[in-house]
Amino acid sequence: MRSLVFPRVSKTPSARPFAQLFRVIDLIHEALVDGVPVTKRDIYYKDVQLFRSQATVDRLVDDLAATLQLTRADLNVRASSKGLMCGSGVTMHMQSGETLELCDGDASLIPPSEDIKRFAVAQTLAWVLVVEKEAVFQTLCRLRLATHETLPGSGLIVTGKGYPDVATRQLVKTLADNLPARVPILALVDGDAYGIDILSVYKHGSTRMRHENSHLAADRVQWLGLWASELASLGIDKDALLPITKHDEKKARSLLKRENLPARWRKELQYMLFSRRKAEIEVLGAARATQESIADLTQAASFSHCDFNRERAGGSPGTPLSRYLVKKIGDACTESGHSSED
């Protein structure tokens, strides 16, 4: 619980926190009376000298919503978008009358949920992949992984560019609530403490916005990878991994104290602390492209010999990252299909 005290002994004016709070309340009241939604960014730029940082506005808006037991949408504060998506088989019909049809090779900005009237999802949609990093997301778009010919169907790829914004979390939550059980919702994050924390925000919600977690947390999200404990089997030497920092160790130990931490997550965090190494997604590029490791991966993904030769020739993605994902997404789709039949 946070409290404001006046007067108080400090190096900065003790009235500033109150001025900031009342300014935020004033701007929200104005938005409600005028019926014009605002974003946190809008509020910040209304009085930069007073707020001094965007984080101040973010904290005050979230605290107000939690205190009043309302959502930010109830306060007419809407999410500004930063997340991206690409893929095939999903069409969004907007409140404005426009239609947003996704492409498997180009990224589209994820619109706020208030702007979306309804979704149309094709029967061919077989999987959803949430990616932590924008750079990795852009690579997968460029490789057209969403329509990879060896996967059991088309896919949707989403990124929140690190810790996700509300619009991205709302999209993932909506998909989790409405897609059939046969469609797995998977997450690709770094095999370190911060990657697991980002995964936790998608799956369990955030502490700061726990009053809205029922509308934002998507429990169906499964951790696809990257797991530090699996890298040796992919031909990646321990020396290729980055050493953990004091911040990594502190974050890992903090996560291990959580009661609802899944067993797999706990195991990977303990492995990271024991090995003193962390696995970032980009390390897959360091995989030794030996004929043995290639054969293992391609056989697991049910590739034929001519399929793989065509992949190496440029007919379809053949990077270590794409081979890794093709195998693991395929396995997840098979497992989800069997589970939905039971």
Rank of each mutant, 00 (worst) to 15 (best):
V57A: 00
C141Y: 09
F274H: 09
G205C: 04
D47P: 15
S88T: 09
H211R: 09
K133F: 03
S214H: 12
Q291E: 15
Y324W: 10
L226H: 11
S233W: 08
R288I: 11
E101K: 11
D26S: 09
K250Y: 15
I110M: 13
R277P: 06
V189W: 12
E114D: 14
G191R: 05
T12Q: 14
G162W: 01
R23D: 06
R220F: 02
V128T: 11
N76P: 04
L179P: 13
D342V: 12
E132W: 08
K203H: 11
A181W: 10
E149Y: 12
A289I: 08
R310G: 00
A135T: 11
I244A: 02
P17V: 01
Q20I: 04
G285Y: 03
H29F: 15
E292Q: 12
S113Q: 15
F18Q: 07
A332Q: 03
H204L: 08
E259L: 02
R142D: 13
E30C: 12
N178E: 13
T91Q: 10
G89T: 03
V57M: 05
E282M: 04
V48N: 07
E114W: 13
I110G: 13
P112Y: 02
D248I: 00
E292N: 02
D104H: 02
Q123K: 15
M92L: 15
G235I: 05
K133Y: 07
R208M: 12
E132I: 01
D190H: 05
I43V: 13
E335N: 02
K173A: 14
I185V: 11
M94W: 07
Y194F: 09
V326R: 05
C103A: 14
V131R: 07
F51D: 05
A295Q: 11
L27K: 12
T67I: 00
S340A: 15
K117A: 15
M85I: 02
S275H: 00
R253L: 15
L21K: 05
G337D: 04
C333M: 14
M85E: 03
N260H: 14
E311N: 13
G337Q: 10
T290W: 15
Q69F: 03
T71K: 09
A286R: 10
Q69G: 00
P17H: 03
F119L: 11
E132F: 03
H211A: 05
E335Y: 04
S304I: 01
N178C: 14
R310S: 02
H204N: 12
A301T: 05
P180S: 01
A228P: 05
A31I: 09
G337S: 08
S254D: 15
P320E: 08
R323T: 00
A126S: 13
V128N: 05
Q123L: 14
R253N: 03
L129K: 03
L269V: 07
A167I: 04
D58L: 02
G235P: 10
D47C: 08
G160W: 01
Q20M: 10
D237S: 06
M272P: 08
V189P: 07
S302I: 03
G162Y: 03
S302V: 08
L140D: 15
E230C: 03
Y163I: 05
A228H: 13
A295F: 11
R210L: 12
S3N: 11
V221D: 04
S10P: 05
E30H: 15
A217N: 09
G87Y: 10
K257D: 10
S53R: 09
T168I: 06
P13I: 00
L284A: 01
L188V: 05
G160K: 07
R142G: 06
G225F: 06
